[in-house]
Computed example of a mutant assay.
Amino acid sequence: MPHAAFVFDAYGTLFDVHAAVRKHSDRVGPDGQFFSEIWRAKQLEYSWTRTLMGAYRDFWVLTEEALDYAFARVPTADRSLRADLLDAYFKLDCYPEVPAVLRALKETGSRVAILSNGSPEMLASAVKNAALDTVIDDVFSVHPIKLFKTAPDVYDMVTTAYRLYPEAVSFQSSNRWDIAGATKFGFRTVWINRSQMPDEYPDLKPDMILPDLNALA
């Protein structure tokens, strides 16, 4: 694939957002999956609404607030797990294929980067924990511009830093809304549809749909 840069969303694409709850599933209780889904959904909702309001807050703060909401919604979950769950989220596992795929792309001479809503501290921790620091060239966090995806200024961080036209960038995300935003911006987009979800944005189609990252290498 003749692209100058391969840019990846972090959460849900490289790092498993449900790994934190799964790590403590025996203590979370029978509603663990529901609990984890609420945590993730509210985390994203908070990012969208705060961008629309112009009321930015650090993504880690939103992650904490979303976890508190999940505890309120799922009374069977033990609140004493709060610190353990946050620690696990700070050190999320990556998906099994991620290291080999990123190494293979880097060996082609393309830049390999992350573009994420995550705070710089969150991303640094996840990258280090997954031992990806030797294969990722750059980590772009939205924190300096205080806007979350899908604001066009977020995607422009990459093209400005690399002095590239959008079509020279291959952008991979498991989040369909993120792919829609990146497509609208002009990136070549690959939807990593890990959960086999139906399409939501037929007017903003990705260039490719893959079940995981393996076919990129």
Rank of each mutant, 00 (worst) to 15 (best):
150 T>M: 05
210 L>Y: 02
191 W>P: 00
176 R>H: 06
141 S>M: 08
208 M>P: 00
217 A>Q: 04
206 P>E: 08
192 I>G: 12
108 T>P: 01
93 D>E: 14
205 K>Y: 04
106 K>N: 02
129 N>W: 12
119 S>A: 15
157 M>Q: 05
108 T>A: 10
39 W>V: 08
77 A>Y: 12
73 R>I: 07
169 V>H: 04
114 I>G: 03
158 V>A: 14
124 A>C: 07
62 L>V: 06
150 T>I: 02
191 W>N: 02
14 L>I: 15
162 Y>P: 01
98 V>W: 03
72 A>W: 07
13 T>N: 07
73 R>L: 11
178 D>C: 09
166 P>G: 11
82 R>K: 04
169 V>L: 07
164 L>P: 00
183 T>I: 12
44 L>R: 06
47 S>E: 02
24 H>Y: 03
106 K>M: 03
107 E>N: 14
72 A>Y: 10
23 K>W: 08
88 A>N: 03
53 M>V: 05
179 I>R: 08
45 E>D: 15
155 Y>T: 00
66 A>W: 02
215 A>V: 05
216 L>H: 10
99 P>Q: 13
79 R>A: 14
146 K>Y: 00
103 R>C: 02
102 L>H: 03
109 G>W: 11
10 A>T: 04
62 L>Y: 03
100 A>T: 00
76 T>F: 06
131 A>R: 14
37 E>D: 13
12 G>C: 11
10 A>L: 07
21 V>S: 13
171 F>E: 02
201 Y>N: 09
44 L>Y: 05
159 T>N: 06
167 E>D: 05
28 V>E: 06
122 M>P: 01
56 Y>G: 00
141 S>R: 04
106 K>F: 02
217 A>N: 07
4 A>H: 12
197 M>N: 15
130 A>K: 08
162 Y>N: 11
82 R>T: 01
177 W>M: 09
164 L>R: 03
92 L>A: 13
161 A>R: 08
129 N>Q: 09
115 L>F: 01
195 S>D: 15
77 A>D: 09
203 D>Y: 10
143 H>D: 01
191 W>F: 03
154 V>D: 02
161 A>M: 07
150 T>N: 07
105 L>I: 07
85 L>W: 05
212 D>R: 14
59 F>H: 07
66 A>K: 06
187 F>I: 09
211 P>L: 14
62 L>E: 06
205 K>I: 04
192 I>S: 12
26 D>R: 12
129 N>A: 15
92 L>P: 01
169 V>R: 04
20 A>M: 11
15 F>N: 06
58 D>K: 05
20 A>R: 12
117 N>Y: 01
8 F>H: 10
140 F>Q: 04
3 H>S: 15
186 G>S: 06
180 A>M: 14
165 Y>K: 14
30 P>C: 15
152 P>L: 09
6 F>S: 13
206 P>A: 15
51 T>E: 04
171 F>M: 10
52 L>R: 03
98 V>C: 03
80 S>V: 13
90 F>L: 15
204 L>M: 14
177 W>F: 10
84 D>S: 14
175 N>W: 04
85 L>G: 02
80 S>I: 07
167 E>G: 09
73 R>F: 06
47 S>R: 07
13 T>V: 12
137 D>H: 09
177 W>R: 12
129 N>D: 05
134 T>H: 08
76 T>P: 00
142 V>Q: 03
42 K>C: 03
80 S>C: 10
44 L>P: 00
71 F>L: 10
33 Q>R: 14
145 I>Q: 01
193 N>L: 08
159 T>S: 11
